[in-house]
């Protein structure tokens, strides 16, 4: 897949980090405002897709990113399970997925115990999944047309 003209490339290089930052904002504030891990993860994957579409594909580096993203996805699910397991071990009541940290006051950024951490983990997982799907399609297209 070929890239686009230099104007599109430059504008994309300016815009993509801002979109990525907006995704992180949506994830971190997921327990206060609308949004959360799912919405922010898909927005971050959108920034990746924008960069791939404008800059074209270099096959060898895309392969490397693909395996890295697979690792990130597996690690995120593992982290989600580990958070649940820590709740099972630490809390006296032994409940899977219990909220074992302090709750804090409702409406502050540092509050709600493990919910922000779980938001970050799920955001990483969704971002890795959606970008892996798109990169797999691009790599398939390049290998066929080669």
């Amino acid at each position: 897949m070929k890239g686009m003209t230099i104007i599109v490339k430059k504008i994309t290089q300016i815009m993509a980090p801002i979109i990525f930052l907006f995704g992180i904002y949506i994830i971190v504030h997921g327990h206060l405002t609308p949004g959360g891990g799912f919405a922010g993860g898909v927005i971050m994957a959108g920034a990746f897709i924008l960069l791939i579409l404008s800059d074209g594909s270099i096959l060898s580096s895309l392969r490397k990113e693909e395996s890295g993203l697979e690792f990130l996805e597996s690690a995120a699910i593992m982290g989600f399970l580990i958070i649940a397991g820590i709740g099972l071990l630490i809390s006296g009541t032994s409940v899977f997925f219990i909220n074992f940290l302090e709750k804090g006051t409702v409406g502050k950024l540092i509050s709600a115990g493990v919910i922000p951490i779980e938001n970050i983990v799920v955001g990483a997982e969704v971002c890795a999944a959606v970008s892996t799907i798109f990169i797999a399609l691009v790599v398939f297209k390049d290998e066929v047309s080669k």
């Binding site: 959360g36 799912f38 898909v42 959606v130 399609l137």
Partner: peptide, 13 residues
């Protein structure tokens, strides 16, 4: 439904 929408994207792909 929030989870179902994201699953829908993956199954469509």
């Amino acid at each position: 439904i929030l989870t179902a929408i994201v699953i829908g994207l993956a199954t469509t792909a």
